[in-house]
Every structure is written in C-alpha cells, then in structure tokens.
Computed example of a mutant assay.
Amino acid sequence: MLSIGSVVLGVADVRHAAAFWTQALGYVPRDAIGDRWVVLVPAEGPGVQLALGRSESPVQEHPRVHLDLYAADAADQAAEVERLVALGARHVDWDLYPQDPDFVVLADPDGNRFCVIDTSRG
C-alpha cells in the first residue's frame, strides 16, 4: 500500500521559500537547506512533509494542485490569513470564489497559490 510521503512545490528561490514555509507551518528542514532542494518536516510529531524544489516553470494562475491549510473557525482563519500575509503571503484576486466561500486564496512569496479553509462550516 502506498502513502503520500511529501507534497512538492516548485519554487524560484529555495532558501526564501523555506524561510516562509517554516514560519507559516512551524516546520523545520529535515537536512541542510540547499540552493536546489529542501524537505521540511513538522517540528513536533508526525505530519506531511513539504518538499521545495527549484523550478523555472511559471506559476499557474489556476493551479491543478495546491495546499489547503485548515483553520478551526472563521476567527482562526482570519488570524491565520493576517499572520501569513505578515510573513510575505499575498491575497489573490480569485475569480472562482463561490457566493459564500469557506476559503481564502493566498499566494506564497513565490506566487504558489494555497487556501486557508474555515473547517467549522463543514
């Protein structure tokens, strides 16, 4: 049986991306951060690894794969969005929002889109 070992993001600057994602998720580098590659792991306990690999591919406006980060409720979501923006994320003018979204679309400093989800809404 297979399991997901890592989620991999292509980034232009591995060190800059690692600085953002370690602060955003409370992760640490598994090994030394290189110019081409790093694997980030939870600082405590189990969890999905996040691998950052240098890429020259352009960022997709509507990516086929992205990260969903879960917040406990609307207040937690708002606080996390504010914290992530302070770390260098930016709001994305997302043209595919439904009428009453339970998610906020952000982009990391490299432009990779991700969502912060209010999980209290089911």
Rank of each mutant, 00 (worst) to 15 (best):
R15S: 13
P58K: 02
G53T: 10
P109D: 10
E80G: 07
A18F: 03
R30D: 11
A32F: 00
W21M: 03
I33Y: 12
D108E: 11
S55A: 12
P58N: 02
V41H: 02
D110H: 11
W21R: 02
R36V: 09
D35K: 08
V92K: 14
E44V: 11
Q99G: 09
A19T: 14
R36D: 14
P29H: 09
L106C: 03
V28T: 14
D31L: 06
W21S: 01
E82Y: 02
H66Q: 14
P98H: 02
D102M: 14
A78F: 09
V85S: 11
D76K: 05
Y97P: 01
L87F: 14
D108C: 03
L69W: 02
H91A: 12
L67Q: 04
V39F: 00
R83H: 13
V28Q: 15
Y97I: 00
A32H: 04
G88A: 08
Q99V: 12
E80P: 06
V41W: 03
A72T: 14
D100Y: 02
A72P: 03
A86W: 04
A79I: 04
E82P: 00
L106G: 07
A17Q: 11
G111W: 01
W21F: 07
A19S: 15
P101C: 06
D100M: 00
A89I: 06
D35E: 15
E80F: 04
A78H: 06
A17V: 13
P63W: 00
G34L: 01
A72F: 07
F103M: 10
V39Q: 14
A71F: 05
L25N: 05
S57E: 15
A12E: 13
P46E: 15
S55F: 05
A79E: 12
R15M: 05
G34Q: 01
V28K: 13
Q49L: 04
V41A: 06
A79D: 11
V14H: 11
V14C: 08
E80I: 02
E82T: 15
P109H: 06
W94A: 10
P98F: 00
T22W: 01
E44F: 08
P98M: 04
V28C: 10
L84V: 09
P58A: 13
L25E: 09
A17D: 12
H16G: 03
A17Y: 13
L69M: 07
A89L: 06
R54D: 01
W94Q: 03
D95T: 15
L50G: 03
P29W: 09
V65I: 06
Q23Y: 12
L69H: 07
D93N: 06
A32R: 06
V81C: 07
A43Q: 15
R36C: 00
W21Y: 14
V104L: 03
V38Y: 02
A24F: 09
E61R: 14
P29C: 09
A74V: 13
R30E: 15
G26S: 09
F20R: 10
A107Y: 00
V104N: 06
L87N: 10
D68E: 12
E80S: 13
D76M: 04
P29S: 12
G34Y: 05
D76A: 13
P63Q: 08
V92Y: 10
E80N: 12
P63S: 05
D108Y: 09
D73S: 08
G53K: 02
